[in-house]
Write a protein that binds this DNA or RNA. Structure first.
Length: 411
RNA sequence: GUGGGUAUAGCUCAGUUGGCAGAGCACCAGGUUGUGGCCCUGGGGGCCGUGGGUUCAAGUCCCACUACUCACCCCA
């Protein structure tokens, strides 16, 4: 039996980093006033088709979609926003006094795996509803940046762009199509395809020929409506007053249909081709699109696996006590259960019959602070032999005194 | 879906013009009758990815398949 392609086990050797990531993320999000929400991994296919956009690659070819036993088409969530928006509408969360949410969880996309890309992956994301003030755009960038700093991830750049709204973007896309159609012969095959489907993507193409054509293409700044322009300018001002450095990238495009106005990405050069660590933006039309009242929205998501890869490994002790039981007697087990009850520390009880030498070696390799050695001698004296693996000191104690000492140690 | 690279011990990888399957790390035991790290000695472990072909002889050469991986596409 092998694991599915693009799926990964997270083993005990990696779990420390995951816990740390989740802890730092939660603390940062909570300190910014965001509340956790958990939505199902499985939703009706229609939700994503309508929310993410029928013509996006995600919906067209990357979804894990199947019929359930009542012949309903269901889909493992390929992204987090649609589900949270659905929950917001379903549960009438507009009546709650707070509108800032976050989630941490698995997403699924049927893609060819590569560095920084899996079929099941995890995202930390936030969604904010009902606020169109540009301050909130700046806040989520600030929040994202703060979280990354607390994770000690450096060498990142923040890129931002304005992609317009329902009112001005269609006009811009039309102009873009007209322009690129004139230069069709210079475009790569992919971009010829994009011309009809998603001309914005041509701006983002890495092909040299396309890049030179794109350089003189119409700019959104010339077509954006006043509303979008003002909004974007205000976001930039807020970012500046927060001392957040950013790069304005007019070619920054997002792959999901629902984005409007302000979009941003946080990018590293250390992850090969998949360098986007976080990305997001505003989606002012989405909630209405999914059947709610017209409500502005904004959010972003970070890829956990990408963050994990950028985090430093920290060596830590994995166990506080290793119980080296040299006899068949229950005396050692009794000590172990007392220790667990009294100290609530991490205690590994050895059940394999092996030499003390091999147990010491094992305790050392496992990363253990104290080895509690218990054999016939100790049992007869009602004592324990305790070796401090860090200082290489060893003492024998009366059992009662030992337990008292250990309780005090961790206070 | 398309292209490149890789596939040998639990892990990282050697393996010469085709000629007995290797190292380091890890694991186990001993050196030390109840004491870790360093050192020394020994040990267990292999369908050499799968299937075909060439050959007296294939880990090695050829073909196909599969998996992994990187990249494209796209995205976190």
């Amino acid at each position: 039996m092998e694991i599915l392609r693009g799926f990964k086990d997270i083993l005990p050797t990696d779990i420390k980093k995951w816990h740390k990531l989740e802890e730092i993320a939660r603390n940062t999000l909570e300190s910014f006033g965001y509340k956790e929400i958990r939505t199902p991994l499985l939703e009706k296919t229609r939700l994503f088709a309508r929310g993410v956009g029928e013509d996006t690659d995600i919906v067209e070819k990357e979804m894990y979609t199947f019929l359930d036993k009542s012949n309903e088409s269901v889909t493992l969530r390929p992204e987090g926003t649609a589900g949270v928006v659905r929950a917001y509408i379903d549960n009438h969360l507009e009546n709650l006094p707070y509108k800032k949410y976050y989630y941490i969880g698995a997403m699924f996309r049927y893609e060819r795996p590569q560095k920084g890309r899996l079929r099941q992956f995890h995202q930390i994301g936030v969604e904010v509803f009902g606020i169109d003030n540009p301050s909130i755009d700046a806040e989520i960038v600030h929040l994202d940046k703060t979280m990354l700093e607390k994770l000690k991830i450096g060498d990142l750049r923040i890129e931002i762009n304005n992609i317009g709204c329902d009112r001005c973007r269609p006009e811009y896309i039309k102009k873009l199509q007209e322009y690129f159609t004139q230069h069709k012969d210079k475009l790569c095959e992919d971009c010829k395809r994009r011309l009809n489907k998603n001309p914005l993507r041509i701006l983002d193409c890495k092909n040299k020929g396309c890049k030179t054509v794109a350089k003189d293409a119409p700019k959104i700044t010339d077509y954006a409506c006043d509303n979008c322009k003002n909004h974007f300018n205000n976001v930039k001002k807020k970012l500046q007053s927060l001392n957040i450095e950013f790069i304005e990238n007019p070619y920054l495009v997002r792959g999901l249909d629902y984005y409007t106005k302000f979009v941003f990405e946080i990018i590293t050069d250390k992850l090969g081709a998949q360098g986007t660590v976080s990305a997001g933006g505003r989606y002012d039309g989405l909630i209405e699109q999914l059947g709610g009242k017209a409500t502005p929205g904004i959010g972003f998501a970070s890829g956990c696996e990408r963050l994990i890869e950028l985090m430093d490994e920290e060596k830590e002790l994995l166990f506080d006590y290793y119980i080296a039981n040299l006899s068949e007697d229950d005396y050692a087990l009794d000590i172990a259960s007392k220790l667990i009850n009294l100290t609530n520390k991490r205690i590994y009880v050895e059940y394999e019959k092996r030499s003390l030498k091999s147990m010491m070696k094992k305790a050392d390799r496992m990363g253990t602070r104290f080895v509690v050695i218990v054999g016939e001698n100790e049992k007869n004296k009602n004592s324990v032999l305790v070796k401090d693996m860090k200082n290489s000191t060893q003492n024998e104690y009366d059992l009662k005194i030992f337990l008292d000492n250990e309780v005090k140690r961790w206070l």
